[in-house]
Design a protein around this nucleic acid. Structure first.
Lengths: 341, 341
DNA sequence: AACGTTTAAGTTAATGATATAGTCAAAGGG
DNA sequence: CCCTTTGACTATATCATTAACTTAAACGTT
């Protein structure tokens, strides 16, 4: 870049003008004559000065063009999960179009304090496990946009999870009445288990609970009761957790003929295990997913699920942050009828 | 965080000590008495001062704990590619362990100038399409570690691509002699095509060309000639590009009985298309991949490929950057014999 | 009490830029 | 000819902190 680091001051001295003029040449063209500006820029190029130091700009201007993406789970997990990574795509492309940089911030950190001073804002994807983070975001002096969960008074991007879950469940429950549910993060446990009487976490805000509400409303409407022994908790939308739950549910007796899954990943794992065990889908077992990932469409039989645009969420969240619109926005979803019901 | 933004100065005035003392209380415990330090910290907590402003620290200290990960392709692409995203995992977990933040930087930007002033260093994954970026990285005042390509005098993390390609090709060419190659980024074209007489790009540095060298060495050793009409160029390791190349190669005449692929993703797409067309693998067609992704192992028939640890690369690259070791390091690879040869 | 040595705390001057208020000359209007 | 306006640029304060220095007190020794 530069051998001996040049500063605005050095340049100003060399060119015999004030530092303000150099600064203006780079940032506020209207503050000096065109001729002078071009002369200055040409000279800067010649002596190898590539423009004002960004670190100093951040301090002085109070903005950095850096947006922190706070991920509910670890970065590792989010990058490989198809839904989350599609979301990240949407965010990154939108930010890039607007000249912003993307800082990935793991949700398992316990504080935003070490970045809040210099980032321009936060996009928070999913509810962080660490509630301290939520508290901090709630009072952050920098703009915050949440996705798939809410913080009071902050703009958020969501679909109507309750309604979506209700719709897909209603469809499935036309064909079966013995129901199990594969839920995500319903209770506070690091491993797969049935919820029994464990207290549900954070009932109001989490999308998982909105979906559960939707499922149960559909069941109730059809006079089907779902006991807590029939509701599984999975700590993450992960193939391995799903496999264990799938084993349990498929060997339980009486075996359910409908399983409502809160993500496509876990629905597909159940589907595969069922087929391996020789269980006919959808004849003996109906399965619904959630998300609408590509793999769900390619599967045979294809998965009945709720499609939502993860990339769209990323784009909307970014736009919301950049324009600082302060409204909650609810994106559309779509029921995709596949062959598993 | 704080209603009216408190500064070191405000706090110092309130507590009746100098700003330096407050600063020392936070950063250099040895510079003041234990009692005073604890009193100061307690007071700060009480009045809601959460520590020195990071933006000011970045300017003053010249370090930010932010590491930029420069991705050869767009962020969007890298996040969904299993090899690249595994690499990102390795990087992010290592950085996090060391208290560093991760800034994703798209390789299709044309300059690192807007971050070079404040990041602590760069990890560059794959050769950026934009050669200006490479030039800038080469003279960057901040440390740079490259992965899967080289910049003179900068530490780099690689496997021996030539040897790995040679090994997998040798294995495959024991069983077949009519060879086609699916290469990545061999020439400067945005779409899938055979290379014919197009000039190869950047022969010395790119891993694709090292691999091509290895393939050709193995062929030569067995007196098999591979004409340029039998070498496909794919602009990216992407299923759709692969599909097109696969169609071309499987309908070409005479049809090759060995296809050497520079990534598992494209090898798997070829495999699936071949099976769909009723071509027997490996009897009529042998396929080799590169990378060793999980899906390659799960496929039926399972893919013969070269395993390299993408996560390991990420970890090594991060460590190299953090310790600023300035040596090139070559990681091991492993031939995984599958059922496709 | 004079002396050298720690230790603790305060002062000052960077760090690299930008916004604001201000200077100064030329131009224009009456 | 005086007064205001405009354009082009400059001086200075500010941003929040830290490194390097300085000062002051404390302490044991002779």
């Amino acid at each position: 870049m530069k051998k001996t680091k040049l500063t605005l001051k050095d340049v100003a001295e060399q060119l015999g003008v004030s530092t303000a003029t150099i600064s203006n040449a780079f940032n506020r063209p209207d503050q000096l004559s065109k001729a002078k500006r071009e002369e200055i820029l040409a000279q800067c190029k010649k002596i190898g000065y590539s423009g004002p130091n960004k670190a100093a700009q951040i301090l002085r201007k109070g903005t950095s063009n850096i947006v922190a993406l706070v991920l509910a789970d670890s970065i590792s997990y989010m990058v490989s999960d198809p839904v989350a990574s599609t979301f990240i795509k949407g965010v990154s492309s939108t930010l890039q179009e607007n000249g912003k940089h993307l800082l990935l911030y793991a949700g398992d950190s316990d504080s935003i304090l070490d970045v809040v001073d210099f980032v321009d804002g936060f996009i928070c994807y999913g509810q962080p496990r660490n509630s301290n983070l939520v508290t901090e975001l709630a009072v952050s002096p920098k703009p915050v946009v949440t996705v798939d969960f809410d913080i009071e008074d902050k703009p958020s991007i969501n679909i109507d999870n309750e309604e979506a879950a209700y719709r897909v469940a209603s469809h499935a429950l036309n064909e079966g009445d013995n129901v199990a549910i594969f839920g995500l993060r319903l209770i506070d446990s690091p491993s797969t288990c049935r919820i029994y009487d464990s207290p549900l976490i954070d009932v109001d805000h989490s999308i998982a609970h909105r979906r559960l509400d939707g499922y149960l409303r559909a069941a109730e409407e059809k006079n089907i009761t779902v006991s807590n022994e029939r509701i599984w908790h999975l700590p993450e939308s992960d193939r391995h957790f799903a496999r264990q739950a799938a084993k349990e549910v498929l060997t339980s007796s009486p075996r359910p003929n409908v399983v409502l899954c809160m993500s496509d990943i876990i629905a597909l794992e159940l589907l595969h295990l069922a087929l391996d065990m020789g269980i006919k889908v959808p004849e003996e077992l109906k399965i619904t997913g959630f998300d609408g990932i590509e793999e769900a469409e390619r599967a045979r039989p294809s998965l009945t699920t709720v499609c939502q645009s993860s990339a769209g969420k990323g784009i909307e969240a970014s736009k919301a942050l950049l324009n600082m619109v302060s409204t909650k926005s609810t994106l559309p979803f779509e029921l995709r009828i596949g062959e598993t019901v």
